[in-house]
Design a protein around this nucleic acid. Sequence first.
DNA 1: TTCCCTTTTAACCTTACATTAACAAAAATG
DNA 2: CATTTTTGTTAATGTAAGGTTAAAAGGGAA
Lengths: 234, 234
Amino acid sequence: MEEQKKKILLVEDDPNFGTVLKDYLIMNDYEVIHAKNGMEGFEKFKKDDFDLCILDVMMPYKDGFTLAKEIREKNTDVPIVFLTAKTMKEDVLRGYKVGADDYLNKPFDSEVLLMKIKAIIQRKATETISDSKQFEFKIGGFDLNSKLRFLRFNGGEPVKLSPKENELLRLLALHENDLMPRELALTKIWRDDNYFTSRSMDVYIAKLRKYLKLDEKVEILNIHGEGFRLVINS
Amino acid sequence: MEEQKKKILLVEDDPNFGTVLKDYLIMNDYEVIHAKNGMEGFEKFKKDDFDLCILDVMMPYKDGFTLAKEIREKNTDVPIVFLTAKTMKEDVLRGYKVGADDYLNKPFDSEVLLMKIKAIIQRKATETISDSKQFEFKIGGFDLNSKLRFLRFNGGEPVKLSPKENELLRLLALHENDLMPRELALTKIWRDDNYFTSRSMDVYIAKLRKYLKLDEKVEILNIHGEGFRLVINS
DNA sequence: TTCCCTTTTAACCTTACATTAACAAAAATG
DNA sequence: CATTTTTGTTAATGTAAGGTTAAAAGGGAA
């Protein structure tokens, strides 16, 4: 069977550099979609499933970070690598906050780039084994469509969920009847684990409980100091 | 309840740099074990469970890569970060080959280092969802679920256990019908063995006895001066 | 800009936990 | 058998975590 080529989204405004990099990646057996700016990058991102995004930081109209944030809202998992001309500390920090997987300084060695790409894609691959792409859940009388972000009770009118509500409920559903550790949600959804994000999460738990009240069989239990548990009583 | 600190193995031969880095990490709430060379690093690695290894590349006798290979043989998962004085392409490539998670060039910005450490440990945290240890016990008519911290009698309504109650009952169950030494519980659960922790433990024994009263076949016996024994009478 | 939606922060309250104290009972010690 | 040590048990205390609601802040779209 033909090995499935890994698909890379490359967003880089410099046409020379972009093309060279693209060709180099293709030569090394990747499928590459090249966008010339942030806008286009986001459009292309929405239209496809990528194994990796390589984003230039410095771009007109929409910089790499803004684009990364938009991408993260759609997809919390896809690896993102930033390209930056100079090593600016703030850049690097900002990058990691948005959930960057790595950082590359231009000019960089192409072999190193390949290695990193390989390492990152590989990393995700091993993660994704257990993390089966699941977006639709049955939660007692509810249907959760995590892709479209809505929650419906008994086939009635769907309620629209905010991104955070949706992610949190999805995580809970992935661990149905089992412990969903606080830390997991905080690192996966909030990308930071501190007092405030933790309180924020509690607020969202309250919101979800309100939604879920329609079905008295469904509840979110707390395990003090550990996390939450979405239980469906039969 | 005390927050579980992340444990870092730092292998660095330069005593000045090593100590500074160690202190800096400790200041930022990590638990750090510092080894002064590759040999010692491997010994310490085998003795403990680490969330991250930071290895200096240039070390006498056993360099960072060799150490990394040994570590990888024991443990395929633990994140490894290399420290290197200069950016040598071969180093970087070699590092990624051994399964490095990241690379840091000395001198590096300490904030950036922290960010990277945080990012890497988080990444691993999300991977490690289901570690199937032993969490379920049958104690006479009771079911103890030590992961979800509840105790159920004859399939009835589960009672929630506090962390200490849970740990203690679990330890007793692990030694069912056998002596569970006082000292063991104190060092394992309370991490300290003194008059007060000992009294605290007695309080918890009383609580457990109250729970277990539902089944007259189950009891916790005291062995004076030695410890306790969870017995199931048939 | 204003408006709307989302998220964070704040405030206040309740519950959960662990420790310590206090006193009683049992066991060991000499 | 008197005294010390260990254990049994309950209650009080202090702190941390979680529940809930509301207000503030942020951000995109019209």
